[in-house]
Structure formats: structure tokens, C-alpha cells
Simulated scan of single mutants.
Amino acid sequence: MRPFLYDRAASTESAPRAFDGLKEASLIQGRAPAEYLAGGTTLLDLMKLDVMQPARVVDITPLEPQHGSIAISDAGLRLGALVKMSTAADHPAVIKTYPVLAQSLTLAASAQLRNMATLGGNLLQRTRCNYFRDTSWSACNKRNPGSGCAALDGLNRQHAILGASQDCIATYPGDFAQALMALDATLDIAGPSGSRTIPIATLHKPPGSTPHIETTLAPGELITALSIPAGPWTRRSLYLKIRDRQSYEFALASAAIALHLDGDTVKDVRIALGGVASVPWRARDAEASLIGKPLNEATATAAARMAFVGSAPRTHNAYKVTLGQKTVVRALLQAATLEG
């Protein structure tokens, strides 16, 4: 690990000031030379691997009293960004009313990591691509902009088939973001220019020609809260995760489903995919194909096929097309059996 400066944020307003003196500093690996630290489960790991080399680390854990609570009302659910993953996953109201959120958190990481990691930090975790995490591979546009992508012609079994580009085919590794996508969550952001609110769908950027720019957050901005609106689809929701083993493993394919039925007819449905895309992926065309139709194996299969139109599999990850489709079908049919 390289030497770095360490600051502790005293308030939400003062936290971004740690970035002020670095505005004119050179980017490090295409990123701002300072990083926020919350649970630390990803940042410290990548610093030890020399994948991330921030000149300054700003510890925001002292802000937990302001951003570490859970509130539920008729309008919806509000989660502080510094709420621990395990706390949200075990919250009775979240389990009962927003089961897709609780399940996505429970199926992520190990119990020890869930006790440390925060919700905001979980959304900002970086890819698990081996070429990104192993600095002996020089060709990684996400770590070393302009160097190429070793995964294109390398071992790419875990990599993305949706939303990727010729500059990066790394997969977004998280689970929680897909659940938030399915529920149309919004994020409260604080930063040097003040506060703003954005849809979760606009947080992550597809790789395009700049895979090192992973989110729409400006330097010094931090997520302070997550809001999920109430709706008739939140109770009939689930997260299905397919992986190589049942414990502490990243998704090969996953689906977050939120469903509103009138009898057996689909009034509204939300489908978000994980394990197959470069960013949390909403399958809106697949959703539209189900509206007004009965939900059965035939309609679910047609929707699943539509969800993967435009996929671009490579040598080792072509299996994800079929696996992803079967995951969507299974998740939709399981959701239909739940009580609304």
C-alpha cells in the first residue's frame, strides 16, 4: 500500500472540502486523487493490491449519526447511505414490504463483510474483473486508461454480455443496485456544489470509450440517502441469484423482479439484471412485453428472450445468454406465486 493522507469528516458539509486542494492535482488512474472511506471493504482491498492509489482518504464514518437511519412511511422507504448492509437486510419492515432489497443484501458477500459495508459504499464497489485487480496485466482501460482491455481475448467467463464496449467488458459485481433499479429508487447526493437528487438508473455509466469513469458523481460528491417509493409491486418482489456456489460468490446471472398482478394479468412489472451487464441493467422492453398479459411460462420466456436482445457474448461467456434467460423466467414465475 502506498502512503496517503488521512482525514476524518466532521460533517456532511465539510467532507467535500478535503477535495478542494486537489482540484488542480493530476488524476490518478483517471480518477480524482482523493477517495471517501466508509466500510472500507472495497477501497482498502484495492489499495493493498495497488489497483487504487489515492493521495488522500477521507473517512466519512463519523457521519453515521446523520446518515445511518432507516425510515419507512406510507410514501416509501428511506435508507441512510451509511446504514450497514446487514442492518437493512435484517430490518423487519424491509423484509416484509421490500423483500427484493433484503434478499439482494443477504445474498451479497459474507456475514462479516455485510456487518462492515455500507449501502452507499456497496453501490460504488468496483468490478471484480481479474485483469482489473491484477496489476501485472497492463492492459486495463478501467485501471490504466488507454491501455486496452485484456479480457477481450482473454479468459472472459465472468464478463458482461450487455452494455459492454470494445474498451471494457467488465461486469458490474453488485446485487443491491439491481434491486434498487427495479424499485425506481432515487439517491440524495451532497457535494461541493450543494445537494441534488438523481434516479439510481443514472448513477452508473456504461464503459463506452471511458471505462475509468464509472459513475456520474463529480469529485467530492457522496451519496447520503436512498429513497424507494411505495407501490403495489414492492411486496411481490424477489431477487434470484445464480452463482457457482451458494456462499460468498458473485452472480453469473441474477434478476430483481417487482410485480403487480390483477388476477393473473400483469399490470406492472420491473426486471433488473445482474451478473450479465457492465452496469445495473433494467430490461424495459421485456417489461413492456408483459403488460396486460397473463404471466405464464410462455409469456415469461418471450420476455426473457427480449431482455437479451442485443447481447454481445464472447468466447467464454456465451452461456450467459441462456442462463440469463432461464434466470428471468424462473424469477418471474416465482414472483407470481408471492402474495401482493
Rank of each mutant, 00 (worst) to 15 (best):
Leu180Val: 08
Ala182Ile: 04
Leu183Asn: 01
Asp184Phe: 02
Asp184Pro: 00
Ala185His: 08
Ala185Gly: 07
Ala185Glu: 04
Thr186Ser: 14
Leu187Pro: 01
Ala190Cys: 13
Ala190Trp: 08
Gly191Arg: 01
Gly191Gln: 06
Gly191Tyr: 05
Pro192Thr: 09
Pro192Ser: 14
Ser193Asp: 15
Ser195Glu: 15
Ser195Thr: 15
Ser195Trp: 08
Arg196Gln: 07
Arg196Lys: 11
Arg196Met: 06
Arg196Thr: 05
Thr197Lys: 11
Ile198Ser: 06
Pro199Ile: 09
Pro199His: 09
Pro199Val: 08
Ile200Phe: 05
Ala201Asn: 12
Ala201Thr: 15
Thr202Gln: 14
His204Met: 12
His204Thr: 07
Lys205Arg: 15
Pro206Gln: 13
Pro206His: 14
Pro207Ser: 07
Gly208Thr: 11
Gly208Gln: 10
Gly208Tyr: 10
Ser209Glu: 15
Ser209Leu: 13
Thr210Ala: 13
Thr210Leu: 11
Thr210Asn: 10
Pro211Ala: 09
His212Arg: 06
Ile213Asn: 12
Ile213Ala: 13
Glu214Phe: 07
Glu214Val: 12
Thr215Met: 10
Thr216Ile: 13
Thr216Arg: 14
Leu217Phe: 05
Leu217Val: 06
Pro219Gln: 06
Gly220Arg: 01
Gly220Cys: 06
Glu221Val: 02
Leu222Trp: 03
Leu222Cys: 02
Ile223Arg: 02
Ile223His: 03
Ala225Tyr: 01
Ala225Asp: 00
Ala225Phe: 00
Leu226Glu: 00
Leu226Met: 14
Leu226Thr: 12
Leu226Ile: 15
Ser227Met: 08
Ser227Gly: 05
Ser227Val: 05
Ile228Gly: 02
Ile228Ser: 00
Pro229Tyr: 01
Pro229His: 05
Pro229Asp: 03
Ala230Met: 04
Ala230Val: 00
Gly231Trp: 01
Gly231Tyr: 04
Pro232Asn: 08
Trp233Tyr: 13
Thr234Gln: 03
Arg235Val: 06
Arg235Ser: 11
Arg235Phe: 03
Arg236Asn: 04
Ser237Val: 00
Ser237Asp: 03
Ser237Pro: 05
Leu238Gln: 07
Leu238Tyr: 01
Leu238Asn: 10
Tyr239Trp: 05
Tyr239Arg: 02
Leu240His: 10
Leu240Gly: 00
Lys241Thr: 08
Lys241Ile: 10
Lys241Asp: 09
Ile242Thr: 14
Arg243Phe: 01
Arg243His: 00
Asp244Ser: 14
Asp244Lys: 12
Arg245Gln: 14
Arg245Met: 09
Gln246Cys: 13
Gln246Leu: 15
Gln246Pro: 12
Ser247Ala: 14
Tyr248Thr: 12
Glu249Met: 13
Phe250Lys: 09
Phe250Thr: 04
Phe250Asn: 03
